[in-house]
Each structure stands twice: as C-alpha cells, then as structure tokens.
C-alpha cells in the first residue's frame, strides 16, 4: 500500500446539540453535546474520563455505573442532556487528589478483587454510593452478594469482591 494522505475532508455530524452545565468530580463543566449522546460516551469521549466503561448499553452489566446527584445510576441509560444541572462522580474522582486510594479501592487491591479491571469502576461506584448512604449495612455473605448483584464480573467469580466489600464497609462505618 502506498503512503497516503487523508482522502476526503473530515465528515461532520449534523446531530442537533444542546448546551449543558454540570459538575463532574467537583469540576464545573460547560459543554455542547449532541442531544442523543449517552452519558457514558460523553464522559468517556468528550471529557476523556475513560475510567467509566461500556459493557452492554442496556443497563444490565453495570460497568458504566456512575453517581448522579448522589445516587448511583447507569450512564449508558442516561442521555447527557438530561445531566444539565447535575452533579456527577466517576471513578476518577474516587482516589484522593494526592493519589491515595479510597478505602474501597484499597480493599479491592488487597483482596485481589479485580483481574481484567473492566467491570471494576462500575462496582466501585455502585458500592461507594451504597456504603456512603447506608448507615449500618448488613454485611452477611448473602446481603453483600445482593448488593453486588447489579454488576456482572466474568473474571473473578465474585468471592474476592465480597471480601473487599466486607473490609471496606467496616472501615467506612468506623470513619462515620
């Protein structure tokens, strides 16, 4: 094949757009988005926050879970335009600004609760939200597995994630 220069001008999207103003990981953002763009794509490709992953785009696998206005939710089932005025937390906002891992991240690390890492951010955000909101979580095996049941993992068989949650929940309860 010959070396080539681009053969056509860059194509354009003619999608209708809207301006949205929101906060992401504490930072105010003002952006113009296509009205059909999913929040997952907005975070990943517009803002470059690629820690939120896309596994199914129909809300089942949980990889895309973020925290919206203080409640966990599937970013693949949310339009970016719905987020005007919203406050969003993603996995990138979980560790401290000096890089120290959040208790939950540290627990995952210590308990070997991740392998390929693709499902991990979704688990972290769903769990952080649940644990922050639940004063006295039931930490029985069954109960923890129920909390985890909204997220699919294909690598770990879940057991180490259960152990990580148990550790983190105890530590988070101590802190409050």
């Amino acid at each position: 094949m010959n070396n080539r220069r681009p053969t056509a001008s860059m194509p354009r999207s003619t999608d209708p757009t809207r301006e949205i103003n929101l906060t992401v990981n504490g930072e105010p953002i003002s952006w113009t988005v296509s009205t059909r763009m999913l929040l997952s794509d907005f975070l990943r490709h517009e803002l470059g926050l690629t820690g939120t992953h896309v596994g199914c785009e129909h809300g089942v696998c949980g990889c895309c879970t973020v925290i919206i206005d203080g409640w966990s939710g599937r970013s693949c089932l949310t339009l970016a335009v719905q987020m005007d005025g919203a406050d969003i937390r993603t996995v990138e906002g979980l560790a401290a600004s000096d890089g120290t891992l959040h208790l939950l991240q540290q627990a995952f690390h210590e308990h070997h609760a991740l392998q390929c890492g693709f499902c991990t951010p979704g688990f972290l955000m769903a769990l952080v939200n649940y644990l922050e909101r639940t004063a006295d979580p039931d930490l029985s095996e069954q109960s923890i597995r129920e909390i985890l049941s909204g997220n699919l993992c294909r690598c770990t068989g879940y057991q180490n994630i259960v152990a990580a949650v148990r550790q983190a929940a105890a530590l988070m309860a101590k802190k409050t």
């Binding site: 926050l49 690629t50 820690g51 939120t52 992953h53 993603t90 996995v91 990138e92 979980l94 560790a95 891992l101 991240q105 995952f108 690390h109 991740l114 890492g117 693709f118 991990t120 951010p121 972290l124």
Partner: peptide, 8 residues
C-alpha cells in the same frame, strides 16, 4: 486499574 486509568 482501580483508578480508572486502564487503557483499553
């Protein structure tokens, strides 16, 4: 990976 800094 935990920080969401994986590069898939």
């Amino acid at each position: 990976l935990l920080r969401g800094e994986g590069a898939y």
